[in-house]
């Protein structure tokens, strides 16, 4: 077994789940051929949509001690956001607070296994780090009417005073759910589940119609 790495320290398995070589992964919106829409579709509009696909997404569960917190910081390269509904966004890694003992970590697709391995090797105590990259995708929505579109979709208050840049909430989105993070005044990140991605993409197209939707490659 040379091509699959399996380690069983701490009584857990960590597996590289990505193939090597030429096999290309297909994101949940692969069938929509967003690249063509980006090229041939409208270039002007109040809502911009981009699928940040094939990223590495991991769920970290733990109730960290002070020592574990600094260890996690050294493993991630950023400190774990401990304030509810906050996040950290850096070049190589983003961390979203999900619940008192849960964080969502976003890295490049190939980095997920490396991070899992690092934790497996260095971290001790009760925790779980679960790769959910295949089960999720990221929608980046932006534009002058992005807040209007989101107001049709989610009951959360998106006013800058209540939802500043960096805030993150996991909440109802249409009849599904999303983890919403504000990246800039008019730019949001939605982390959604694979199986609901098509429904949510349809919903966003519909909710954006009156403002004009621009798909970005």
């Amino acid at each position: 077994m040379s091509d699959v790495t399996v380690e069983a320290m701490e009584g857990k398995v960590v597996t590289n789940q990505l193939p090597t070589g030429a096999i290309v992964g297909e994101s949940p919106l692969h069938h929509s051929d967003l690249a063509s829409i980006a090229e041939k579709g409208p270039q002007q509009g109040g809502v911009h949509f981009h699928e940040r696909k094939l990223k590495g997404l991991l769920t970290l569960r733990c109730t960290p001690s002070v020592e574990q917190l600094s260890l996690i910081e050294s493993l991630l390269g950023v400190a774990l956001p401990m304030q509810p509904l906050t996040s950290v966004t850096a070049d190589a890694i983003s961390v979203r607070w999900m619940s008192p003992d849960e964080w969502l970590i976003i890295v490049d697709g190939e980095q997920a296994f490396e991070l899992e391995t690092r934790f497996q090797e260095k971290f001790s105590g009760h925790y779980a780090l679960v790769n959910i990259s295949g089960g999720t995708t990221i929608f980046e929505v932006s534009g002058s009417h992005v807040v209007d579109m989101l107001k049709k979709s989610t009951p959360v208050d998106l006013h800058a005073s209540e939802f500043p840049v960096g805030k993150v909430v996991s909440t109802v989105f249409a009849k599904s759910g999303a983890t919403i993070c504000r990246l800039a005044d008019e730019k949001f990140e939605l982390v959604v589940r694979r199986s609901f991605a098509d429904y949510l993409w349809l919903w966003i197209q519909d909710a954006s119609r009156e403002y004009g939707l621009v798909v970005k490659a």
Binding site: P28, H31, A174, S195, D198, Y199, L200, L202, D206
Partner: peptide
């Protein structure tokens, strides 16, 4: 509202749906 027609209820798909 918009919870009608195609958007009445979410449809969940597997990766092999197409």
């Amino acid at each position: 509202g918009r919870d009608c027609g195609e958007l009445f209820d979410p449809k969940r798909y597997t990766a092999m749906h197409a």
